[in-house]
Design a protein around this nucleic acid. Structure first.
Lengths: 107, 107
DNA sequence: ACATTTGTTCGTAATTTCACGAACAACGAA
DNA sequence: TTCGTTGTTCGTGAAATTACGAACAAATGT
């Protein structure tokens, strides 16, 4: 099955995109991209969802590899997974910003 | 309700991300980002899905505003929606590539 | 030891996504 | 007009997503 039409990079990019595909998760990611870390308790206060729902969203971001949690008892400190974050940058940058500034006649 | 915690831009970005959150759709987008246009018939041949399923995916990309179809009877020619594509570039670029090259100690 | 704080897990329900085949609509060609 | 091509829509079912509250687990503080 080397005959893959859809590349590994596309699978990865889709996976990252899916994780970003919810306003709550986008909010958390953007916050972490400019704040270096946060605690879920603070997020629960400002976001219109209960803590269990937030926990699910954070878990998805974790599973996608975009963030990581670190125990800082009794709380948990979340921050970006810089390694994968960079990979996401590369993957998205690779196809997102092609021929950006051209006066392209739509086909 | 000016008290929005989650911004419009975050909603938009999440919407675009969600549309990109499937390998098939990522494949189509990447193809269009380097090929300027394509026909769904060709896609059906190379992709492991039936035409009705592909039609659904293309519809999602259309609804998200990322692509547009143009009748070129008897086929339909698809290409990127350059305007929204650029918006997606800006939105993603805005939070995706912050402090990229720093020797960041993860918190 | 006990209560409090913090966050995850579980159970549940409504909604959405994904995929398929069948039926349909639009159009060009014979 | 009839046929073949192209793509959408409809109906269906399986699986995933989203959200909530209740229950639970871990660690700190009293």
């Amino acid at each position: 099955m080397t005959n893959k039409i859809i590349t590994e990079d596309q699978q990865k990019a889709a996976r990252y995109a899916k994780a970003m595909g919810h306003p709550i998760r986008m909010y958390v990611l953007e916050l972490l991209s400019k704040q270096s870390c946060c605690y879920s308790g603070d997020l629960t206060e400002e976001l219109p969802i209960v803590k269990s729902t937030l926990s699910q969203h954070l878990k998805e971001l974790k599973n996608a590899g975009l963030i990581q949690g670190e125990i800082e008892a009794p709380r948990i400190k979340y921050c970006l997974n810089r390694e994968n974050w960079k990979e996401a940058q590369v993957l998205f940058g690779k196809f997102l910003k092609m021929d950006s500034e051209e006066p392209f006649t739509n086909c």
